[in-house]
Design a protein around this nucleic acid. Structure first.
Lengths: 339, 339
DNA sequence: CTGAAAGCGCTTACAG
DNA sequence: CTGAAAGCGCTTACAG
C-alpha cells in the first residue's frame, strides 16, 4: 500500500503535522535534528505526498491547465507555431513546482468543467479566438487565473501574452516596399476587428501609410491556415491577382504552401513573386527558397506567460496587464526586388 | 463557494449517496423521477464533481500521465514525429473519460514521483530509450499500468506499441536495391542491440541478404537526430564515403538535413545521391525534392496505445502483449536510379 | 430504491 | 518547537 504521512509520523515518533511541515519546507517550526530524521525516513520509505489529498485540504492544487481547442471528437488543434509552446510551458511550470493538465476543449461549457473538476489554480488558453475568450464569464471562470496566449481580448477575467503583431506586419510590409514592391497581396484567414490577424492587417497598412502610399486592397483569405490551403491559393494567385509582385502571408505554413502552389503554377519565387511569412518556424529554413519571415521569441513568450500566470495564482487574483513581446524581420531567400 | 454533492443532496431532499449514484450513471439504483430531479438541479447549480475528492476516496483517479524525457532544466524533448502523438493521445483519453497529465522527466526518480503524487491510473511513456524502460522496477511502478510508445523493452511491467521498424527498413533498402543502388549508407543515432534503430538496422541488412548481396558496412552516426546534424553529415558525406550512391536515414528530419548538406556540398539529390527517410512527416512533402520515406500510421498508433492502456487500467493489471503496426513505402522524388 | 457512517491523505487554525 | 481535532468532497461497504 501507499506510504502516508501517518506512516512517516509513526516511524519518526512525531505528529503528522510535524512531518507535513518538514515535507513542505516550513523548517522554521521544527528542530534541526527532527528535520534530519524525518527526511531520512521519507527518503527510505519513498514517501510521495498525495497531490489529491493536498489539493482537497489546501486551497491550492498546484495544477495548471493548458486548454487547447479541439474540433468535436477530433484531435487537439495545435498549430505548428504553438507546438513548441506546449513543451516550454510544461518546463516553466515544472520549475515552479506545478503540474500541467493538458485538455482539449470542443465546447464552451467544457472550460468550466476543466477548471472546476481538478480545482485548477490557473489555466493557459492556447489557440482560442478572441471572440471565444470574450465570452468567458465569472460564473465559468470562478477564482481561477486565466492567461491567453496571442490574445487581444479585453475580457478582465483574463490577461494575455502576445507578440507585437502590428510591428511584425509593419516590418514585413516595409521590407517589401523597400525592395520596390507596390502590388502586395495580404493572405490570411478571415478576420474581425480584433485579434492577431487584424493587428497584422493594421500593421501592414501602416507601412503603406508611412511611405505615403495607398494600398489598393488585395486580400486573399483561406478557410484554414494550412499548407494545403496555401498551395491552393498559390495555384490561383496569378489568375486572381496577375499584377501582384509579392505576397505577405500571416503564417509561415501558409507562406510555404503558397510558394509551392506558385511553383506548380510555373511562377518562380522570388523571381516572379516574393513571399514573406510570419512565425519563423524551423521549417521555414528547410524549404527552397528559404523563407523570409517575422520571428517571434517563443521561449520568452512561454516563460513570460507562466511567470505572469503564477504571479496571479499566488496572489489569488486575476492577472494584470497584458504583455507584448518584440519581433524581428529575418531576411532569407524568398523575397527580392520585383523585376 | 464551490457547489458540492451535499448542496445538491440538500436541495433535492435526498442523501449524498443518491446524488453520487445519479452523477456516476448508476441509474439502476435510483427511481426515474429522482434521477430527473437531481439532474435538473445539477445542471441549474452547475455542479462539477471534485476530481481530487473522487480520486482520494475511490481507487481510481481517471488520470493518465504522459511522460516525456526532458533534459535537465530543459524543455520537453518531443521529436517532430512524436508531436502529433501527444494531441491524439489526449483525444483518445478524453473520449474515454480520462484526463491527461503532461510531465517532463529529467531524472529517473521523477517517474515514481509523477506516478504516485497524482495517483495516476496509468501512464504513457513517449520518447524514452529501451534501456530506460528496462530499468523501471516494481517499486517505482507500483500498480500503475504503463505503456511505452516505440519500445522493444521486455520489461514485464510495461507493454509497447510500435511500428514495424524491421519491415520499414527492409522496404526502404529493397527500394534502393531495386533501383540499382549497392553502396548505401545507413545514417542514424548510435544504437545498442535492442530498440527502434537496431530493428531498422536489422531490416536494412535483411534486404541485402534477401537479394543475395553482402552489405559492406557503411554506418554514419549522429549525436542527435536533428536537421542540423543531418546537414553536417550531408556536407561531409562525399569525403567519408565517395563511393556512396544512396543514404537511408532513420528519420525524416535527419534525411532532410542530409539533403541540404549534400546540396550545399554541390551534390544533387537524387541525381548524384538518393536519400530515403523514415516517418513521413508533413514536412517531407514540403521540401525539395520531396522525400521518399517510410510512413507510419500515427493516429492508429495513438488510438491503439490508449486502448491497450485503458484496458489494463480497467482490469487493474499490467498491460499484456505489445502490438506492432504496419508501415509502407511512400515513393517521392528523392530517390532514383544511380547514374 | 435509499441512507448513515467511516475513511481516503492531507492542511488549517488553534493551543500549549 | 510540537500536537489533537476538524474538515476538504467524495466513495465504499453495509443496512434496511
Amino acid at each position: 500500500m501507499r506510504v502516508t504521512l501517518k506512516d512517516i509520523a509513526d516511524e519518526a515518533g512525531v505528529s503528522m503535522m510535524t512531518v507535513s511541515n518538514v515535507v513542505n519546507g516550513k523548517r522554521a517550526r521544527v528542530s534541526p535534528e527532527t528535520i534530519e530524521r524525518i527526511q531520512r525516513i521519507v527518503a527510505e520509505r519513498g514517501y510521495v505526498p498525495s497531490a489529491s489529498a493536498r489539493s482537497l485540504a489546501a486551497k491550492s492544487s498546484k495544477l495548471i491547465g493548458l486548454l487547447v481547442p479541439a474540433a468535436d471528437e477530433d484531435s487537439l488543434m495545435i498549430s505548428p507555431h504553438n507546438v513548441a509552446i506546449v513543451g516550454l510551458i510544461e518546463r516553466e511550470l515544472r520549475k515552479g513546482g506545478y503540474h500541467l493538465l493538458l485538455r482539449g476543449i470542443s465546447q464552451p461549457a467544457e472550460v468550466a468543467e476543466a477548471l472546476q473538476s481538478w480545482s485548477l489554480d490557473g489555466a493557459v488558453l492556447l489557440g482560442f479566438l478572441d471572440e471565444e475568450i470574450d465570452r468567458l464569464t465569472a460564473r465559468t471562470v470562478g477564482k481561477v487565473s486565466l492567461l491567453a496566449i496571442d490574445s487581444y481580448s479585453a475580457n478582465p477575467l483574463t490577461t494575455g501574452v502576445r507578440s507585437d503583431d502590428h510591428t511584425g506586419a509593419l516590418l514585413a510590409a516595409r521590407h517589401l516596399l523597400a525592395l520596390g514592391h507596390r502590388e502586395i497581396v495580404f493572405a490570411g484567414p478571415a478576420f474581425s476587428d480584433v485579434g492577431v490577424v487584424h493587428q497584422r492587417y493594421q500593421g501592414f497598412r501602416a507601412a503603406y501609410a508611412e511611405a505615403g502610399l495607398t494600398w489598393i486592397e488585395r486580400i486573399v483569405t483561406v478557410e484554414t491556415t494550412t499548407h494545403g490551403s496555401g498551395r491552393d491559393l498559390g495555384l490561383r494567385l496569378m489568375q486572381s491577382h496577375p499584377e501582384a509582385t509579392a505576397v505577405f502571408a500571416t503564417a509561415d505554413i501558409l507562406a510555404i504552401g503558397i510558394m509551392e502552389g506558385l511553383a506548380e503554377a510555373g511562377c518562380s519565387v522570388p523571381g516572379d513573386v516574393s513571399v514573406l511569412g510570419f512565425d519563423d518556424l524551423d521549417l521555414s529554413r528547410y524549404v527552397t527558397p528559404k523563407l523570409t519571415t517575422i520571428a517571434q521569441d517563443i521561449p520568452q513568450k512561454a516563460a513570460i506567460a507562466v511567470r505572469l500566470l503564477l504571479a496571479a495564482v499566488e496572489r489569488r487574483e486575476h492577472p494584470a496587464d497584458p504583455i507584448t513581446l518584440g519581433v524581428r524581420l529575418i531576411t532569407r531567400d524568398s523575397t527580392a526586388a520585383p523585376r
